[in-house]
Amino acid sequence: MEHPPHVLVIEDDDDVLDLLDGHLTRLGCRVSRATDGEQGVATAVAERPDVIFVDMVLPGIDGREVADRLRGDTRTADCKIVVTSVLDPQDVDDKRFDGILTKPFRRADIRTALTTVDVAIPEVSP
């Protein structure tokens, strides 16, 4: 079996961050966390995760700016980026992002988002 997918979650709401972390862990992913855009970009560059879940609205730089910085850096340009948002999907659908996870979400929605960006999920528990 290959290594578990490494997912970086960039989210400023602690409850949502904990929820995403828990669901992703139960889906067999290794999770890193960041609570703002600047920290998220730095973590992504340092750790080069397979997938980045980034909230659209963050303190400091927003999800679009995070995506722009990641796409502009050769170390992270190929990372899959899934935006998380309470906005309507058509309001956040642009070429910066590989997928969209609409809030509120369930674990099945997270699984679908991972599958959409071609990440194999080695689920370890129901």
Rank of each mutant, 00 (worst) to 15 (best):
Met1Gly: 15
Met1Ser: 15
Pro4His: 07
Pro5Met: 01
His6Asp: 09
Leu8Gln: 06
Val9Met: 11
Ile10Trp: 02
Glu11His: 12
Glu11Asn: 14
Asp12Glu: 14
Asp13Asn: 15
Asp14Glu: 14
Asp15Met: 13
Val16His: 05
Val16Thr: 15
Val16Asp: 12
Leu20Ala: 08
Leu20Pro: 09
Leu24Val: 08
Leu24Cys: 07
Thr25Asp: 14
Arg26Cys: 12
Arg30Ile: 12
Val31Leu: 08
Val31Tyr: 09
Ser32Gly: 15
Ser32Val: 05
Ser32His: 08
Arg33Ala: 11
Arg33His: 09
Arg33Phe: 10
Ala34Pro: 07
Thr35Asn: 14
Asp36Gly: 06
Asp36Tyr: 15
Asp36Phe: 13
Asp36Thr: 07
Asp36Val: 06
Gly37Val: 09
Glu38Cys: 11
Val41His: 08
Val41Leu: 09
Ala42Tyr: 09
Thr43Gly: 02
Val45Arg: 15
Val45Cys: 02
Ala46Leu: 11
Ala46Lys: 13
Glu47Gln: 12
Glu47Thr: 15
Arg48Gln: 15
Pro49Trp: 01
Pro49Glu: 10
Pro49Thr: 13
Asp50Cys: 00
Asp50Lys: 00
Ile52Lys: 00
Ile52Glu: 00
Phe53Val: 07
Phe53Leu: 12
Asp55Lys: 06
Val57Leu: 14
Leu58Asn: 12
Pro59Thr: 14
Gly60Ala: 04
Gly60Leu: 02
Asp62His: 13
Gly63Thr: 06
Arg64Ser: 02
Glu65Gln: 13
Glu65Asp: 11
Val66Pro: 07
Ala67Trp: 06
Ala67Phe: 09
Asp68Arg: 10
Asp68Leu: 09
Asp68Ile: 04
Arg69Ser: 03
Arg69Ile: 00
Gly72Arg: 03
Asp73Pro: 04
Asp73Val: 04
Asp73Ser: 11
Thr74Asp: 15
Thr74Glu: 08
Arg75Ile: 01
Thr76Glu: 02
Ala77Gln: 10
Asp78Gly: 09
Asp78Val: 10
Asp78Ile: 03
Cys79Lys: 00
Lys80Met: 05
Ile81Ser: 07
Val83Tyr: 02
Thr84Pro: 06
Thr84Trp: 00
Thr84Val: 10
Ser85Ile: 05
Ser85Trp: 10
Val86Lys: 04
Val86Tyr: 05
Val86Ile: 08
Leu87Tyr: 13
Leu87Ala: 09
Asp88Cys: 07
Asp91Gly: 00
Val92Ser: 01
Asp94Ser: 08
Asp94Gln: 06
Arg96Thr: 01
Phe97Arg: 00
Phe97Lys: 00
Asp98Ala: 05
Asp98Val: 02
Gly99Thr: 00
Leu101Ser: 07
Pro104Val: 13
Pro104Leu: 11
Pro104Ile: 13
Pro104Phe: 15
Phe105Asp: 03
Phe105Leu: 11
Arg106Leu: 14
Arg106Ala: 10
Arg107Thr: 12
Arg107Val: 12
Ala108His: 08
Asp109Arg: 11
Asp109Gly: 12
Ile110Trp: 04
Ile110Cys: 12
Ile110Val: 15
Ile110Met: 08
Arg111Ser: 10
Arg111Met: 05
Thr112Arg: 13
Ala113Arg: 02
Leu114Asp: 01
Thr116Asn: 10
Thr116Met: 08
Val117Ala: 01
Val117Pro: 03
Val119Ser: 01
Val119Thr: 13
Ala120Met: 05
Ile121Tyr: 12
Ile121Val: 14
Val124Ile: 10
Ser125Trp: 08
Pro126Trp: 15
